[in-house]
């Protein structure tokens, strides 16, 4: 019996190992699909942030200070970008504001694109109430800032608005519905 069981045991162990490898691969695929399904190639990002309350608390507790959006692009072969938000603020906005930043990411076609990045950037917090009083700010990239140079790492330093919206305005208006906020870039 030992003779016949030993190879089976080896096989079972191998299958267990393969199962965990596949589980990890499936989780990776899930994440990839999620990114692909929400990617935009027209230069406009709509970022849906669920579980605002929990994420805000995590930011206050300094567990997770910031969140990154899925990447988006100015075109199929254009600039790769994303947004970064600090629900409990960063810099001058720390503890009082939501800070919203724009990030230029290293993309597949950077070698063919003009640098520094010069496109106008509009950041918006969407009002989900009937008055649709979206809050927005716009900037033109500072050509001397390292944030808009051709990325040497996966991401450049985020640049944007530390005082984007005060937490009291955000939390008393109709910007949060179903514990969800929408950011448009």
């Amino acid at each position: 019996t030992t003779h016949t069981l030993a190879p089976l045991e080896t096989q079972l162990n191998r299958h267990d190992d393969m199962l965990s490898v596949h589980e990890i691969r499936l989780a990776d695929m899930d994440l990839r699909f999620q990114v692909l399904e929400t990617a935009s190639y027209n230069g406009t990002l709509i970022w849906k942030i669920r579980d605002y309350k929990r994420r805000k608390q995590e930011a206050v507790a300094a567990k997770t200070l910031s969140l990154y959006s899925q990447p988006f692009y100015t075109g199929y072969f254009g600039y790769k970008m994303c947004a970064r938000v600090y629900l409990n603020g960063d810099g001058m906005g720390k503890g009082t504001h939501l800070s919203l930043f724009f990030v230029v990411m290293r993309g597949e076609y950077d070698a063919l694109l003009p640098w520094p990045f010069k496109q106008k950037v509009t950041l918006m917090l969407m009002d989900q109430g009937p008055s649709r009083k979206h809050l927005g700010d716009a900037f033109k990239p500072d050509p001397n800032s390292s944030s808009f140079r051709r990325p040497a790492a996966e991401m450049n330093i985020a640049s944007g608005c530390p005082l984007f919206v005060s937490q009291s305005v955000l939390e008393t208006g109709s910007y949060i519905k179903d514990d969800t906020i929408f950011i448009k870039v």
Partner: peptide, 15 residues
């Protein structure tokens, strides 16, 4: 349209 000056994020950690 008014444009503001973009300010760099002060945080250098990557979550």
């Amino acid at each position: 349209q008014q444009f503001s000056m973009p300010i760099q994020c002060t945080d250098r950690t990557d979550e």
